[in-house]
């Protein structure tokens, strides 16, 4: 995972898919990263490199969402693949993740 600090926004660029196989490691990493940047007011999860997200991945993103909520900082997801975007739409998470509404096909 790559971490970029843009102004007060912490951009987390996930290295690849977010799956049950790697979420445990990501959890620890995310906690450490958030802890290292107490000044950040926004967190952006950048999924530009992710092709798929499974239930554990969704759980991780929701946990990150809740963590941001707890820290009273903003959270959004950016650059999901069309497949992932469709999944978020169906689960009604797009809005929560700050993705602009798309016209459903």
């Amino acid at each position: 995972m790559q971490t970029l600090l843009e102004a007060s926004t912490l951009r987390l660029v996930f290295a690849g898919d977010i799956l049950s196989t790697n979420v445990a490691a990501l959890r620890t990493e995310l906690l450490a990263t958030l802890g290292a940047h107490p000044a950040a007011t926004h967190v952006t999860a950048d999924l530009v490199n992710a092709r798929t997200v499974d239930s554990q991945g969704i759980n991780l993103l929701l946990a990150l969402y809740r963590e941001s909520e707890r820290r009273k900082i903003g959270f959004r997801v950016e650059n999901p693949s069309p497949e992932i975007r469709r999944l978020f739409d169906l689960l009604n998470l797009s809005g929560r993740f700050g993705l602009k509404p798309t016209k459903q096909p």
């Binding site: 959890r27 906690l31 239930s55 991780l60 809740r66 689960l91």
Partner: peptide
């Protein structure tokens, strides 16, 4: 599911999802 009828709305229960420090990540319930 969508091919079998109309999906009116989905609600994902995020209260059940623990924070990042949850020990055993819960299943996501919709």
């Amino acid at each position: 599911v969508q091919s079998l009828g109309t999906l009116i709305d989905t609600a994902t229960d995020i209260a059940e999802v623990g924070g990042l420090d949850a020990e055993a990540p819960a299943d996501v319930v919709c």
